[in-house]
Design a protein around this nucleic acid. Structure first.
Lengths: 250, 250
DNA sequence: CGCGATTTGTGCACGCCTTCACAAGCGCCT
DNA sequence: AGGCGCTTGTGAAGGCGTGCACAAATCGCG
């Protein structure tokens, strides 16, 4: 690949300035990078110095050709005949994903789900820190959850002024989500993770990702339905080769 | 479309038998059906009898052409010049997704996240019922959560024998997930929703969907990183037209 | 009864993503 | 030093999904 991203081939050292001019990565690739990163961390802890595309692909649950193409978009960080340097590749992916910078997360809605998210280990362990909790219910304001005090949603602007919130997480009921999103945007948040089952309308420069737990179940329900109808049909073998998938992508 | 799925045009009545022989729907379409369904329910409660593809598309946050193509895969349930009959379309989508049958869900891992999932309204309100909670930690066994008693994971086979579990939800730490998946499969579960950050290996006839909350944050982090590098670049206007996306492939 | 307004259903073209297959490159062993 | 085996990086092909643009169909009104 002729794409030489940031000067030195040493692989690091000049990270500071905003040099990137990103080789605009395919969205599908970006969605897989975190998976590769997790697999690499596991392998690294297992004592591996290098890993082949085949090995890493297996650990990440993807095709090895796809993995190589994905990584090739980042640059040439592998060695032919050997494989990828685990530590170097971790560093590269973390750089591309912007994980070398601590990103502050604000969570709105401390209900059932929000409560769990506030204490979810997976966030902290991967470089995200929830720095503020908000809720509209006065009964919840003041409550202490996993070391953080719940503040009223109206305090959002004040908190955002103090510490820049990189990402806002919405865990409110659907009815309140749009209003919360508007407030987050007004407070300067440009990335939102939405757990509320509704469509959010935001300016073009704001990124929204939606996670709807019930939708996942409904998709599984469809496949159950399909499998059931297959086995009940003539020649209905027990759905061998039904083609299960292993990702969410979206 | 010449696809006449189940005899009567009345819209229901002969649902019982496994007639389907599914017009194998594109996976992308399936993933969007639940979103359409939610939008339809909202519209129905709003008192709408019919809805145009344009209107429904807006409510679901998609392109109207895409919506029409998606729905055309189910059959012709719209009326030209008028739109779609809300009630009929709800019924059709629910049928395709297999939501006309109550599906029992078993949840394994009653930690932070599992606890929240056990009480998540979104499941019950869309036809899913969590019928059993499991955990490996003896300290948690016996605990009562949202009306259900936590049982030890070893009891899974016994419970599955009593009531068929359609879907298994894994909310354990990554280390335990594969073992739990194996036990679920052994108990006859053929659909798994995995919240643990790891790749599961299962037989071909078992469907796995993965939801990794940290991955979503990392994807957002990438876009934050990209946007930041753009604004720091010459001609760096505030990222207008950055192209945000609105779904997760989930 | 016919006409125009409206909306669905879909053929088609385009672009993205995946997958295959292989040349290029690297290290090791003799 | 040379050759051999292994692995990466990538050109090319195929498939899938999206979006446009329009013909077909339906309703309501004059």
């Amino acid at each position: 690949m002729s794409q030489q991203r940031h000067g030195s081939t040493s692989g690091n050292g000049d990270r500071a300035g905003a040099v990137p001019a990103f080789p605009d990565l395919p969205e599908a690739t970006i969605a897989r990078l975190p998976e590769y990163l997790r697999a690499l961390h596991n392998l690294g802890e297992g004592g591996a110095d290098t890993i082949s595309s085949e090995g890493l692909a297996a650990a990440a649950g993807v095709n090895s050709a796809k993995l190589r193409k994905d990584l090739s978009h980042l640059g040439s960080y592998g060695t032919r005949g050997v494989g990828y340097d685990v530590a170097l590749l971790i560093e590269q992916i973390e750089y591309v994903l912007g994980l070398d910078q601590r990103r502050a997360v604000g969570l709105v809605g401390v209900g059932n789900l929000g409560h769990a998210l506030a204490g979810y280990d997976g966030f902290a362990s991967r470089g995200f820190k929830i720095v503020a909790l908000f809720d509209a219910d006065p009964a919840k304001v003041g409550e202490r959850i996993h070391g953080l005090v719940v503040r009223h949603i109206d305090e959002l602007p004040a908190v955002a002024a103090e510490e820049t919130l990189a990402i806002g997480v919405i865990a409110t009921p659907a009815g309140a989500a749009q209003a919360v999103a508007d407030e987050l945007v007004a407070a300067g948040v440009t990335s939102i993770l939405n757990f509320a089952p509704c469509v959010l309308s935001v300016p073009a420069n704001v990124d929204v990702r939606k996670v709807d737990l019930a939708i996942e179940l409904q998709i599984l329900s469809f496949h159950e339905h399909r499998k059931a109808s297959l086995t009940a049909l003539p020649g209905g073998r027990s759905a061998t080769g039904a083609g299960n998938q292993e990702a969410v992508g979206s």
